[in-house]
Amino acid sequence: MQEKSKSWLQFLLEVIVLVLLFTLVQYALSAGLVNQSYQITLTSMCINVILAVSLNLINGFTGQLSLGHAGFMAIGAYVSVIITNFMDLPFIAGILGGCLAAGIAGFVVGVPTLRLKGDYLAIATLAFGEIIRVVLQNIDYVNGPAGIMGITKLTTWPWLYWAAIFTILIIVNLMNSSYGRAIVSIREDEVASELMGINTTRYKVLAFVIGAMFAGLAGVLYAHYFYIIRPETFNFLKSFDMLVMVVLGGLGSTTGAIIAAVFITFLTLALQKYAAMRMVIYALTLIIVMIYRPQGLMGNKELSRKTFSGIWGGRK
């Protein structure tokens, strides 16, 4: 009971924390306290958070192994650039268009493939992701393999930050709803949940489409920050990178996905000097983490106020 009466207060606290964090970084940015290298890292961080959290919805919560997330990111990126740079429409139209296109692609890919299970689904989504890339490579309208260069920089800190927060909120709220419980039940036991009268296909497709839309959003933000997009950027290795973040953070843990995304982004930056050795270090990190903590950093638990109150020795 206490929980409920306090919930508005806590909510307000959350909002204040979020806004404070935003304003703090915004101030630091405008005061020139953050050098360019960290500005880019900050951008990659937000984009990676969106990708990891959205892939976690599919892989972690729904338990459907998807290896085609980069394909949806590519669609979001390309469609939005066509809207903003070729058609000269405002950024918001690009964002909506990119997300919508990625969502539709998610639906088209998801409906037939989500009947498949486990590794078959993994390979089918990987195949779709690669097909998207090959098709982009052969479309002259978007310059084929050379990609689109000179994209107007429209992605700014407010967009990045609130897009990431928006993604997290939508997914956290989805998972706390009856939809979320249905989705988790699919992961736990698909046959049983079907027997309980849950239309598993519908929920799997729903999760897949939402995940794809946010991958599209990440693509939009990526394209309008990094100046150039090429089909090659979105190959299956990119999907692997996202999967690594999700598993490293802990399948089915949104906070885990966030932490892992931030960690991987900084790791990448820190290792720039080490040439090929960086990839060896990265690989070893993966292997060691998996051997000693196969459930990922967070397992399927969330980092929340409760975790902290536990640490402070507060009431249970």
Partner: peptide
């Protein structure tokens, strides 16, 4: 100052920014 850009455009940008620093 040798830096690796991983054959990816966004990494090339990030490396340049670090080098500028």
């Amino acid at each position: 100052l040798q830096r690796d850009c991983k054959s990816i455009a966004d990494e090339a940008m990030s490396v340049s920014a670090a080098l500028v620093g």
